[in-house]
C-alpha cells in the first residue's frame, strides 16, 4: 500500500485530484437529475408507462362515418326498404361513403352525398370469385348482365328483382 505508514492526510492530499473529479461527476449527475425532473411530462405514468394526455389527443380525432343509427334517423323510407331485404345488414355508408359531414351539417342538403359508382360498387362484392364463401350471391357480371348497369334491374336498397 503506497500510503502505508503515511497519515490519512497525506493520502487525501495525494488523491485530491480524484476528489475533484468525483465532485465534477457528482455535479454533472445532479444537473442531469435536475433537468430530468423538470422535463418529465406531467402525469406521465398515471395509468402505465405513458402520458395519459395521449388518450385524449387520440379521442379528439373527428369522426368521418356517422354510423348506421344516425342515417336511419332521417332516411326512414330507405331504411325501411333496406331492412326488409337482403341488404338489411349492409350499413348505408358502406355504399354511400363517409357521411358525418353531411349528418352534422347545419344544412345537410348542402353536403349532399354523391351517388355511388354502381358499375364498380356492386361488383366489388358480387363478382364471382373462388375465394368468396360459396353461399354468398355472386355472378360473372359479363355473362350475367352483358354490361347493363346492375340497378337497371335490381333495386340496391332491396336487391330482389
Amino acid at each position: 500500500m503506497p500510503w502505508k505508514g503515511g497519515t490519512l492526510r497525506q493520502f487525501f492530499r495525494n488523491s485530491g485530484h480524484l476528489i475533484r473529479l468525483a465532485a465534477v461527476l457528482i455535479a454533472g449527475l445532479c444537473v442531469f437529475l435536475l433537468i430530468r425532473t423538470a422535463l418529465i411530462p406531467k402525469a406521465f405514468g398515471k395509468y402505465g408507462h405513458y402520458s395519459p394526455g395521449a388518450l385524449d389527443v387520440i379521442r379528439q380525432r373527428p369522426v368521418s362515418y356517422a354510423g348506421q343509427d344516425t342515417c336511419v334517423m332521417c332516411h326512414d323510407g330507405e331504411a325501411k326498404e333496406r331492412a326488409s331485404g337482403r341488404h338489411a345488414h349492409v350499413a348505408c355508408e358502406a355504399c354511400h361513403g363517409p357521411q358525418a359531414a353531411h349528418a352534422n351539417a347545419d344544412d345537410p342538403s348542402a353536403h349532399k352525398p354523391r351517388l355511388p359508382d354502381v358499375a364498380n360498387l356492386c361488383r366489388r362484392c358480387h363478382e364471382k370469385d373462388a375465394a368468396k364463401p360459396a353461399h354468398f350471391p355472386q355472378v360473372v357480371t359479363a355473362e350475367h348482365s352483358g354490361g347493363a348497369a346492375c340497378n337497371s334491374c335490381h333495386q340496391p336498397h332491396n336487391p330482389h328483382l
Binding site: P2, W3, F11, N14, S15, G16, H17, L18
Partner: peptide, 8 residues
C-alpha cells in the same frame, strides 16, 4: 507526485 501516481 509518485504517491499520487501510484493511487492513479
Amino acid at each position: 507526485s509518485p504517491a499520487s501516481r501510484v493511487i492513479d
